[in-house]
């Protein structure tokens, strides 16, 4: 059964230095508040996993929380580059960042394998590209029935997956809707999971396109209203596109970035 905790307690209990951590949410429902709490608790040497690192991982990388990144698309959506990610890869600032690079199809299938309790997934992918030459976790595999050569990618089983959802009930059942990306698979693939929510309600009214994570499939639930900003929570907020634009200037320069993080994250205690 999921424990209802504060965000600070949830991160303190579930995220350790050196862990493999996945914060998922495909443009929608990105768990920014949890990312900020990881920065405040000064976690180090994390292996960060996420299909689209987005601004949330740009912040974690720039604050020196990560030693490794497993990803498939590292840009600022609709804007351009992630400057902290680029600075880490191109110049090793603040620390060198090892990367393991996939495609979206590969990452999605790696979570599916993880959630399915299988060691790897099979797909028709990466064919002809340069990715298999640089990413050891992409291998050819021959179909035992047809002889066709396909691609295998290993399961992803994060130590902890963190997602943001619209609601949970008081027993910790979680409900999300709208674009739900790969969150269900990422939670089920993980050893531990933390879900931040917009609100905790007495009962979950069914919603179109909903995904429900039963309480016994989740480690902890924390209330974090607005916890996906500048991403959004359908039915609660809209995406703050202006912030994504503004991030380009904030993150371009190391000092500007560090000052912004100090003011808006490190010194901004979140009450939840």
């Amino acid at each position: 059964m999921a424990e209802i905790v504060s965000l600070a307690e949830g991160v303190a209990e579930l995220v350790n230095d050196g862990d493999t951590v996945a914060l998922e949410g495909f443009t929608h429902l990105i768990p920014f508040a949890a990312g900020h709490e990881i920065v405040r608790q000064r976690r180090r040497d994390l292996e960060l996993v996420r299909m689209t690192p987005d601004v949330v991982y740009d912040q974690l990388i720039g604050m020196g929380c990560a030693r490794r990144l497993v990803f498939s698309w590292g840009g600022n959506p609709g804007v351009g580059s992630l400057h902290r990610f680029r600075d880490a890869v191109e110049r090793g600032w603040p620390t060198p960042l090892e990367i393991e690079e996939h495609s979206h199809a590969g990452m999605a299938n790696r979570y599916v394998a993880g959630a399915s309790g299988l060691p790897f997934a099979v797909l028709r992918g990466y064919t002809g590209t340069d990715l298999p030459r640089h990413t050891p976790t992409i291998k050819p595999i021959t179909c035992p029935f047809t002889g066709e050569v396909l691609t295998a990618v290993p399961a992803l089983n994060p130590d902890v997956t963190i997602v943001h959802a619209q609601r949970a009930d008081r027993t910790g059942n979680v409900q999300m809707w709208g674009i739900t990306g790969v969150q269900k698979e990422a939670v089920l693939a993980a050893k531990r999971s933390l879900v931040t929510v917009e609100e905790i309600v007495d009962s979950l009214e069914p919603m179109p396109t909903q995904v429900v994570l039963p309480t016994w499939a989740v480690s902890a639930v924390a209330l974090a209203p607005g916890g996906s900003h500048p991403s959004y929570a359908q039915g609660y907020s809209v995406r703050d596109n202006d912030f994504y634009q503004a991030w380009d200037a904030i993150s371009r320069d190391r000092d500007t970035f560090t000052t912004w993080m100090r003011e808006h994250v490190l010194d901004a205690r979140r009450d939840a």
């Binding site: 999605a108 709208g178 674009i179 990306g181 790969v182 698979e185």
Partner: peptide, 24 residues
């Protein structure tokens, strides 16, 4: 839409499916 996951895409879609389903 300003991003691949803009809310207007989900609001107006015939179906919204998971990312593994889109690709697979």
């Amino acid at each position: 839409p300003l991003s691949i996951g803009d809310g207007i895409l989900a609001d107006t879609a015939d179906a919204v499916v998971s990312v593994p389903e889109v690709f697979n």
